[in-house]
Nucleic acid binder design. Structure first.
Length: 438
DNA sequence: TTAGGGTTAG
């Protein structure tokens, strides 16, 4: 707070004296880093700020080695600049994603020596990477030992590690840890909600209901989040009837159903084919005076596209615009096609995300329009979002559609490029390209 | 980054 205040004082007085240089452009700096060889020095005279550094790290997210190199250069060569905790956390996330464990730990030690961390958030980041790369035990150990790295364990960090395990589908592991330590950390409603959600994520609603019963027995009252989680769980596991009955029960018992409840019901009913009922729930929501969100409209649009007709989806889209909602990337992604992509950028002032690109690239690849797919890929490279692992996998698969030898060569180049950018191709992808080339 | 709702996904 204080630092921000001082910073704003400095900038405003500089502006008053007309000395303020144009603000550095993260996109320009990122592109410069991307296009120059790895030993190049950073542009001099740049007024580095945590905000600028963070936005560059995010732009270089899908080019991990360059991102880390940038971080290290700034850390070592610029004596007067000290990275902020949030920049450290971003760099640690990138290093952990690339499985550079030595780098992760040296960054953590560096944070500690600068007395700016590590924080519980730092450990949550690393634990998440462990859990998502099939090492849940390492994630648990990290949590159990975090106090040795100057970071205390409390209920919040306990809930976080459980959530990390659950979100990476290691629910059994989470449940074990939960049973072992719930007494020590005095598990609260958040803890139980995390576990309920975990079982729901892997479609084991009976286990989720069991935990729900258990929390009540232990004197912890479920809240609206608990019920919304359960509701989503029923739909996710295909128990549409139970979902519907649960929804009715929630209303009957005056749980204070909210926009999340309605969005879940509209989406859940719709994707399982009950479009009429989904629309009825949506109308009922309006009657009850619960304001739909962009997510609610997106849910309805998706349902219309998939189970009704694109024309009706567009009607909902137009209605959304009429009511003053601002469609976001997700909205446009449902109504696929170049036309929509143009519209989102020109009229909507809404930048395509890598999901948008990936979807379009997949579409072109599948119908053999390899040049168009490659064109979009090029556009990505020079724009705000760099291709990610999915992009490469989709595009490389696309190179096999036409069974042409020149496509194989492109596939080979893409494979090399993805490795250079810090992605690990699946064995399948690798062998396929190799076979293709041979 | 202490929990729940919209991209495509089993």
């Amino acid at each position: 707070m204080n630092r921000l205040f001082i910073k704003s004082l400095c900038t405003s007085s500089a502006a008053a004296a007309n000395l303020k240089p144009p603000p550095p452009d993260p996109a320009a700096i990122s592109n410069l880093i991307l296009s120059s060889p790895i030993q190049s020095p950073l542009p001099s005279n740049t007024p580095w700020t945590p905000h600028l550094v963070n936005s560059i790290l995010k732009r270089l997210w899908n080019h991990g080695p360059k991102a880390l190199h940038f971080f290290h250069l700034l850390d070592r060569r610029h004596r007067n600049y000290i990275h902020s905790p949030s920049s450290f956390n971003l760099a640690i996330d990138i290093a952990a994603r690339l499985h550079l464990h030595t780098t992760v730990w040296s960054l953590i030690r560096r944070m500690r020596s600068l007395r700016i961390g590590p924080s519980p958030k730092t450990f949550a980041i690393v634990a998440e990477r462990f859990a998502s790369s099939g090492k849940p035990d390492k994630a648990v150990n990290l949590f159990l030992n975090m106090h040795e790295h100057g970071c205390s364990q409390d209920l919040a960090s306990f809930n976080t590690i459980l959530d990390v395990l659950c979100k990476s589908k290691r629910v059994e592991k989470a449940y074990e840890l939960f049973k072992d330590l719930r007494g020590r950390f005095s598990a609260d409603v958040v803890t139980y909600n995390v576990i309920v959600n975990g079982w729901c994520l892997i479609k084991r609603t009976p286990k989720a209901l069991e935990v729900l019963k258990e929390m009540v027995e232990r004197g912890i009252s479920p809240n609206l989040t608990t019920y919304n989680t359960m509701l989503k769980g029923f739909f996710r596991s295909g128990q549409v009837r139970q979902g519907w009955e649960f929804f009715l029960e929630m209303k009957k018992r005056n749980c204070g159903v909210d926009v999340v409840t309605y969005t879940t019901a509209v989406h859940g009913l719709g994707v399982s084919g009950e479009v009429k009922r989904a629309k009825k729930v949506f109308d009922e929501m309006l009657r009850e005076g619960v304001l739909p969100s962009v997510a609610t409209y997106n849910a309805l649009i998706q349902v219309m596209c998939k189970k009704d007709s694109v024309e009706n989806a567009v009607l909902v889209f137009e209605e959304m615009l009429r009511k003053g909602y601002e469609p976001n990337v997700t909205t446009y992604n449902f109504t696929r096609g170049e036309e929509m992509m143009r519209r989102m950028e020109e009229e909507g002032g809404c930048e395509a995300s890598f999901q948008t690109y990936n979807m379009m690239i997949r579409y072109y690849s599948e119908c053999g329009e390899v040049e168009k797919a490659l064109g979009l890929f090029e556009r990505m490279g020079s724009g705000g979002c760099l291709p990610n692992l999915d992009t490469y996998n989709i595009l490389i698969s696309g190179m096999f559609v036409r069974k042409r030898s020149e496509d194989m060569v492109v596939a080979g180049k893409l494979l090399l490029q993805m490795v250079e950018r810090g992605f690990v191709p699946r064995r399948f992808t690798f062998n396929r390209v190799l076979n293709g080339l041979l």
